Simulated scan of single mutants.
Amino acid sequence: MDFDFSPDQTAFSETVERFLDANPDPEVFDVTRENMAQVVDTPARRAYMRKMADQGWLGITWPEEWGGQDGDGVYEYLLNEALAGRGGPQIGKGVGIIGKTLLAHGSDKLKAEFLPKILNNEVEFAVGYSEPEAGSDAASMKLRAVRDGAGWRLNGQKTWTTSAHFAEWYWVGARTDPDAPKHHGITLFLVPMDHPGITVRAIWTMGDERTNDVFFDDVWVSDEYVVGELNKGFQYISQALDLERFTMFSFAPIQQRLNVLTEYVKEATRDDEPLREDPIVRKQLATLVTEAAVARLLGLRVVAAAAGGGKPPTVEASGYKLYATELSKRLANASMDIASPGTQLRVGTEDAPMTGRADSTYRYTVLDTIGGGTSEVQKNIIARRGLGLPKNF
């Protein structure tokens, strides 16, 4: 099997790398934020993504009629991997989750209002699925939307909304038919984050990043801001989660962390003996390098499945997300074990092993196995949709 990229794809990747080399910015690129580095949460990061827009790189796979290039998804993959490898922001929710769902299901009004802003990176979105009693099982959401005139009145709570404190719009699911089965009766809405009925409260994670609780108190939303058909929101969410599970957890940061550990092992000593000659350490590194190669190919499998058309790459995306995030944890554990108790020093500590990188890797990667659906949820998806096992096995 040929795993090489085509000449055109290789040329595009080289073009991206040259652009990044010519436009470095320490306020934008920070590998120590691990996978949270992808978030476009500061003025500097937003400005940088506008440079991406100027290159025409934010709508590669979109139809030409909406400003895109009708290109293959592999180009988005290459772009995101290049950005992620340097700890930079990625094309993310707007182009992927929101943009592609609007292209498939949105009204002409929503397309006209939001798609040009997304392509120009003029708007940021928060995504609201999780609730206190509906985490990975998004179908259990209870945020109520009750018909009120030419719109809907929303009341309830969302949680773990990472972008709520800086986004302009909320892409949020709410239950519009409480009598329907839980996978039905959910509708997607677009709600301005500055609505007076919305309250955002910070939650600080063990990775030193902010996520949020979001409270809805009589938030009225016009019918014009309903996404797609009423009561079909969960089906749209499920399709979008395939994108989220893949794009949220790029392979490049895993490779970058592995390179950091490998370089440390090359130079470090233990009891005056080179660490690289320790047979246990060598075995650990060989295993991690092999598993990293597997993760990369699982990611390419998602790209290939998406390019083939037909059904969304649900099983492939879950397989990659499960393997890659669990590998990230194994890599973090190995970094802590190999480099001794000094790895408990905070990231940025100059005299710590790997300047404290093991600390940030360890704390962040715990979160990775939860975001976008826990590892247990991914196993269930693979079991049911990939292996055809019954729901209650």
Rank of each mutant, 00 (worst) to 15 (best):
F3M: 15
S6I: 08
P24Q: 00
A37W: 00
V40M: 01
R50A: 11
K51R: 11
I60D: 07
P63L: 13
W66A: 08
E81T: 03
I97W: 09
I98H: 06
L102A: 07
G106C: 13
G106K: 10
K111F: 08
F125A: 06
G135Y: 09
S140T: 12
L143N: 07
W152I: 09
L154Y: 08
P181I: 13
G185D: 06
I186F: 08
L190T: 00
H195F: 14
G197E: 04
T199D: 08
V200Q: 10
A202F: 07
A202Y: 05
D223V: 13
V226G: 01
L230A: 07
S238N: 12
F246P: 06
A252F: 00
P253I: 10
I254W: 07
E267D: 13
A268C: 11
T269M: 05
L275I: 10
R282S: 09
Q284R: 15
L285H: 04
A293G: 15
R296Y: 14
V303G: 04
V303N: 11
Y320H: 07
K321A: 07
K329R: 14
S335L: 13
I338V: 13
S340D: 15
P353E: 06
G356I: 08
S360K: 01
Y362Q: 12
Y362N: 10
Y364A: 05
G371P: 07
G372V: 11
L387A: 12
